[in-house]
């Protein structure tokens, strides 16, 4: 069993109704699988922020331990103590 902390920002936190959550997960679970689990746990609008036409929303920004991930990295297995930060589409300033 591993523990992973997820921080949600901006509209994601509003739609999920939560800013930070720790997940106890089976070893080997991937980031994509965790996103799928979150989509089922949080209210419906959250799903629309995560998926776009059944694929990961290209505007979603995911950082794993402060490293910006691209889509190909989302199949990587998570490790105990990992920290994820999720942002919807925002830019500027």
């Amino acid at each position: 069993m591993i523990t992973v902390t997820v921080k949600l920002f901006n509209l994601l936190a509003i739609y999920a109704g939560i800013k930070t959550q720790s997940f106890d997960l089976a070893e080997g679970i991937t980031i994509k699988q965790l996103l799928e689990r979150m989509v089922h746990e949080y209210p419906a609008p959250f799903k629309d922020m995560i998926y776009h036409h059944e694929k990961i929303n290209p505007h979603l920004r995911i950082f794993l331990n402060e490293h910006l991930l691209n889509e190909s990295e989302l199949d990587a297995a998570l490790s105990d103590g990992d920290k994820l930060m999720l942002f919807p589409a925002i830019a500027g300033g």
Binding site: N10, L11, R61, E66, L68, F87, I90, G93
Partner: peptide
């Protein structure tokens, strides 16, 4: 636009958190 709702909600202040992991 995909960016509209988040910017409408928070304005540029919404960028504070995003800029942390980017450094």
């Amino acid at each position: 636009n995909e960016f509209f709702a988040g910017i409408h909600q928070f304005g540029t202040s919404g960028l504070v958190a995003l800029m942390q992991p980017i450094g």
